[in-house]
Design a protein around this nucleic acid. Structure first.
Length: 489
RNA sequence: GGGGCGCUAGCUCAAUUUGGCAGAGCCAGUGACUCUUAAUCACUUGGUUUCAGGUUCGAGUCCUGAGCGCCUCACCA
């Protein structure tokens, strides 16, 4: 028939043959009565002996031709259904169309009666058949699917067609985010949107992406966090707000980091970090239950119980337990460094005491926190937006929480004293002058807002992608982001 | 950025160890077959072995460089 062996050229040739038959390969609309899943369900519910006629649509994903009759499967978003075309029922022209001009991957409509085959599969006996959209390129192989990681990421649509596990991950991701929204909406929180393009970045320690607005002739930054805008809303009297959106950090890419990632930040007036802990554990248990059916999950072979309450332990106690070092006894950089060396603990140099504490934890304790754990009370110099523990000058009411060794979120009792906040920004500036390149810039507009009065507030940030990784048992953040960032080819 | 591994037909993989005609399955094409479902049977097509150089009588295989990806270390959440 066709001369070429190139799949694409073969199919383009078929377009010409279809045109000669007066068949539109891309009709504008279609009518159907059942999805694949609905048709199967309808048959099971129908009375004995009742005939059911259905119109179904979908992508042709298998075709078994036996000369004068053929079996095939159509796949739509609900699942797949088998169709059976007999030459004497559907007629020779339609039958030849199916055999000669349809290809795997094409979208097809068909009408017919449901019946059960000898092997028990509910099937449409085709009376009429129509092409809905011609495919020019072949799909990945039916049995082995698409395995090449690069192709899976760059052509995610093929991954979704070929690999059921990929579909499952992204359907679960959607359910998790819906559950998070539902939980917060039902607890009196208001979903809001704040600027992605910001004149001053803040709310986290990270390097930003920089861009430029032509009409304003002004440098803008893609946000690294929502924090400072959401606090302005708390000041404005929106007592419970949250935002789900992308943050952008111009840093390395690995299995737990991606330059644009989805975060949720939640602020609750008249609450503190203890309230935020209760919110975190309730929210996780609920989302896990809703998305996976249980608040006990399996991650990389480990059973993890997300049921509240989670373990609460201070940073000081965790470090003492994990390294034998009491940071209360080593309150200077040199003393803490010496204590680590004494115990043979490998650590790298840091710009200040607070970062050294963080480094010690990250290198020697974090990976041991498999069951969900809140770690409380952080050094002030790495927490410029958190309120001090009453009576303390160097520790703030902050926690991060860890599951499966992964840092999953961060929260504090928010600093609402505008003069203290100004001093913290100044301290950050001094740390920057001393060589710390991850400090937060002073935001005068934010300070002005706070000077108008901010209630006591609990604030919380959760990395949604990592949460999805946990609940879908994935080890790379790229497996839970539909289109991960790739170098251009 | 450093280190390791990988890239062969549309897809999944052999051939690389020890340099010697680049192969299979699926897909595609032709034919047979009116209950198949990884349909079956027969025959057939399909390759710039990621790219650019080099060594060699001869390179998918060895060497140099580049590209892209994955893992890992560093940095970050």
């Amino acid at each position: 028939m066709t001369e070429t062996t190139d799949r694409r050229e073969q199919r383009i040739a078929k377009l010409g043959q279809l045109a000669a038959l007066g068949i539109d390969p891309y009709p504008a609309r279609v009518h159907y009565t059942h999805t694949a899943a609905e048709a199967l369900a309808a048959f099971e519910q129908a009375a004995e002996g009742q005939t059911l006629e259905v119109e179904v649509v979908g992508r042709l994903v298998s075709l078994r031709d036996m000369g004068k009759s053929s079996f095939a499967h159509l796949a739509d978003g609900s699942g797949r259904i088998q169709i059976y075309a007999r030459k004497d029922v559907v007629g020779e022209p339609s039958y030849e169309l199916l055999r000669r001009l349809f290809d795997l991957g094409d979208f097809v409509w068909c009408k017919g009666k449901l019946f059960r085959t000898r092997t028990g599969e509910v099937t449409v006996e085709v009376q009429a058949l129509q092409l809905l959209a011609k495919t020019l390129r072949p799909l990945p192989e039916k049995w082995h699917g698409l395995k090449d990681v690069e192709a899976r990421y760059r052509q995610r649509y093929l991954d979704l067609i070929a690999n059921e596990d990929t579909r499952r991950v992204f359907i679960t991701r959607s359910r998790i985010i819906s559950a998070v929204r539902r939980y917060l909406d039902e607890h009196g929180f208001l979903e809001v949107e704040t600027p992605v393009l910001q004149p001053i970045y803040g709310g986290a320690n990270a390097r930003p992406f920089t861009t430029h607005h032509n009409a304003l002739d002004q440098t803008l930054y893609l946000r690294i966090a929502d924090e400072l805008y959401l606090k302005r809303l708390i000041i404005g009297g929106l007592d419970r707000v949250y935002e789900i959106g992308h943050n952008f950090r111009n840093e390395g890419i690995d299995t737990q980091h991606h330059p644009e990632f989805t975060a949720i930040e939640i602020y609750q007036a008249y609450a503190d970090y203890h309230d935020m802990m209760r919110l975190v554990e309730e929210l996780h248990a609920y989302a896990a239950q809703q998305a996976t059916g249980s608040s006990v999950i399996t991650y990389q072979g480990q059973t993890i119980d997300l049921t509240p309450p989670w373990r609460r332990v201070t940073l000081r106690d965790l470090l003492l337990e994990g390294t034998g070092i009491d940071i209360r006894q080593h309150t200077t950089y040199d003393s803490l460094w010496a204590a680590a060396l004494e115990r043979g603990l490998e650590i790298s140099k840091q710009p200040n005491w607070g970062k050294l504490v963080d480094e010690l934890f990250g290198e020697h304790v974090q990976r041991t926190l498999v069951q969900p754990t809140f770690m409380l009370d952080y050094p002030i110099e790495i927490s410029p937006l958190a309120k001090k523990v009453p009576g303390s000058q160097d520790t703030v009411e902050r926690f991060e929480f860890f599951v499966a060794g992964m840092e999953c979120g961060n929260a504090f009792t928010e600093l609402n004293d505008p003069l203290d906040q100004r001093e913290r920004f100044m301290s950050q500036h001094r740390l920057a002058q001393a060589g710390d390149d991850e400090t937060q810039p002073l935001d005068e507009d934010f300070l002005t807002a706070m000077e108008h009065g901010m209630p006591p507030t609990g604030g919380l940030g959760i990395g949604i992608d990592r949460m999805v990784m946990l609940l879908t048992d994935q080890t790379s953040i790229r497996e839970v982001i539909l289109f991960p960032q790739m170098r251009s080819k």
